[in-house]
Measured scan of single mutants.
Amino acid sequence: MQGVVKVNSALNMRSGPGSNYGVIGTLRNNDKVEIIKEVDGWYEIRFNGKVGYASKSYITIVN
Rank of each mutant, 00 (worst) to 15 (best):
Y43F: 14
I59G: 01
K37A: 15
R46E: 15
L27H: 00
Y58G: 13
D31L: 04
A54P: 00
E38N: 04
G22R: 08
I61G: 05
S19H: 15
V39S: 07
V7F: 05
I35S: 01
V4N: 06
E44F: 10
V7N: 08
S15G: 10
N48Q: 14
N63F: 03
N12I: 11
D31W: 05
E34N: 04
Y21I: 01
G52L: 02
Y53N: 01
E38H: 05
I36F: 11
E44M: 06
E38P: 04
V33N: 00
L11C: 06
T60K: 08
D31I: 04
V51Y: 12
T26G: 04
Y53L: 01
Y58W: 10
Q2I: 14
I45A: 02
M13E: 00
V7C: 05
V4E: 09
I45T: 03
E38M: 06
G3F: 03
I59H: 00
Y43D: 00
S57A: 14
E34F: 06
G3V: 04
T26S: 10
V51F: 09
A54Q: 03
V51Q: 09
K56H: 07
E38A: 07
Y43E: 00
V23S: 10
S57R: 11
Y53Q: 00
G49V: 06
A10R: 11
R14I: 05
L27Q: 01
V51W: 10
G3T: 03
V51T: 13
V33Y: 02
F47N: 05
G3H: 03
R14S: 05
A10V: 13
I59E: 00
V39I: 14
S19V: 13
L27S: 01
M1W: 11
Y58V: 11
Y43P: 00
E38G: 05
Y58F: 15
I36P: 01
K50A: 15
N48P: 02
V39Q: 09
I24A: 06
K50T: 10
A54S: 06
I61Y: 07
L11A: 14
V5E: 01
V7Y: 05
R46S: 14
E34P: 03
M1C: 05
R14V: 10
Q2K: 07
S57N: 15
I24C: 04
N8D: 15
G41Y: 05
I59T: 02
E38W: 05
V5M: 03
S15D: 15
M1H: 14
Y58E: 14
S15P: 01
Q2A: 12
W42S: 01
I35P: 01
Y43K: 01
E34S: 05
Y21M: 04
Y21N: 04
S55C: 06
I35N: 00
K6A: 13
G3S: 03
G18E: 03
G25H: 11
G18N: 06
G18L: 01
T60D: 14
I59K: 00
A54T: 15
G22H: 13
V5R: 01
W42D: 02
N8A: 14
G25P: 00
Y43H: 02
D31V: 06
D31P: 01
I59C: 03
N63Y: 03
D31N: 07
N8I: 13
N48V: 09
N8C: 06
I45L: 10
V23T: 10
D40Q: 09
G49T: 10
V23E: 06
T26W: 09
R46A: 15
Q2G: 09
F47Y: 11
Y53C: 02
V39Y: 12
V33G: 01
N20G: 11
S55T: 11
G3R: 02
F47W: 07
N30W: 08
K37E: 09
E44Y: 07
N63M: 09
N48Y: 10
M13W: 09
E38K: 04
W42V: 01
E44I: 06
Y43L: 11
I61Q: 06
E44N: 11
N20Y: 12
V62H: 11
K32F: 11
V23K: 08
M13N: 01
S55Y: 10
Q2L: 12
I24N: 06
G52F: 03
S15H: 08
E38L: 07
S57K: 12
E44Q: 09
V51N: 15
N63C: 06
G16P: 00
V7A: 11
W42M: 03
V7M: 05
G41M: 10
I61R: 08
G3M: 03
S19F: 14
D40V: 08
Q2W: 15
